[in-house]
Design a protein around this nucleic acid. Structure first.
Lengths: 191, 191
DNA sequence: ATAGATGGTGAACCACAGTTCATCTTATTC
DNA sequence: GAATAAGATGAACTGTGGTTCACCATCTAT
């Protein structure tokens, strides 16, 4: 069922360039960047964009998928560290922080995803991330550091509400406000 | 310095109708509702909208201002209850919950405010709300219930990150996750 | 080297939403 | 009840941005 001949070399190259450019442009100027601008940034004509992605929504979806893949990688790495002996709570909060920090860059991606009807291009990556986070939580709960009723969807909930458009100080503060809800430790003064 | 004759009666009436309709339409269908639709809902022609509000951004700003005024009222009422003997923490969290709940209706307002360059039409209402919340926090801290380093901007930060587009259960859960960051009490199991 | 399809180009197209304005209506004033 | 200014109307205009498509270029298999 795959008799189609292999895609042309330059087509593959262009696809990558487009994806990269789209990511950059969207994170830089928000989701309202025109297709023309993305095309220009990729060093390609608009038509080429449409050859690879039938619609702008599809393009954004692809960018979002790439973002999710990155997050999944991050989560799995964190899990790896825990298996190597690191504390799960620490890794989880650090993961949270990292995602929130990174989302400054990727905030527009999120916005774009909502503006258009962003579809999960690759459910697989989403699952990967979920599994890793779940494992992280479980270990943390076994350690007695993470509150027993915390679930993966809690983490997603916090992700989706992260103040990506706020200055660094505010993001740090937000993290400080939110972590006590996840851990069993009493809130410490700070920041 | 006010020699201008009083505005016509129907003009005043229309202004109200427009504001009301704009609020409804935006909360119902998001900030992307067309001016035509708002006009239709108000039982007026588009041109009338532009007579009262030179641009769509101005109209949205007016709607946002009305929203802020409502929040300010709410905060002041809560403060009143505290002065009458209620616990400040409870009132603060209840206030938070109320705003989050209400924002289901008003979520689009927030979105609209960000989409366009929403300007604070009435700084006064903003200040009213801020003052009331500050008082609430202060009393709560004096009671020893609210963490000493909590500030008004923390509350604003939480507002701005409230999951307004999530189902009720998720919003409740969010509140449960976030409150421990404000209080001095240890997190209790729940939900 | 050549054929033929795959991929690339970009000017033109189109739909949509905000905005304008010449004209008509209606409230207010004397 | 005129006269007049304030307000209302809505068809038409405009600019923007996604999308198309007829034509050209390039890669790959033979």
């Amino acid at each position: 069922m795959t008799p189609a001949r292999a895609p042309r070399a330059d087509a593959v190259r262009n696809r990558k360039k487009i994806l990269a450019a789209a990511g950059e442009q969207i994170t830089a100027h928000g989701p309202e960047v025109g297709m023309d601008e993305i095309a220009a940034a990729a060093g390609v004509a608009v038509g080429t964009l449409y050859r690879h992605f039938p619609t702008k929504t599809d393009l954004v979806a692809a960018v979002v998928a790439a973002y999710i893949a990155r997050v999944a990688d991050d989560a799995e790495t964190a899990l790896g560290r825990v298996e190597a002996g690191a504390h799960a709570v620490d890794e989880l909060t650090a993961f949270l922080r990292r995602v929130v920090e990174a989302s400054v860059t990727d905030r527009a991606v999120k916005a774009a995803a909502q503006t258009l009807g962003a579809e999960p291009g690759d459910r697989a990556d989403e699952d990967r991330a979920g599994a890793a986070v779940a494992a992280l939580i479980q270990v943390g709960q076994a350690d007695g550091d993470i509150h027993p009723d915390v679930t993966v969807s809690d983490i997603y909930l916090l992700f989706s509400t992260a103040p990506t458009d706020q200055p660094p100080a505010a993001r740090a503060r937000w993290l400080a406000l939110v972590t006590p809800g996840l851990t069993t430790r009493t809130r410490e003064a700070g920041n």
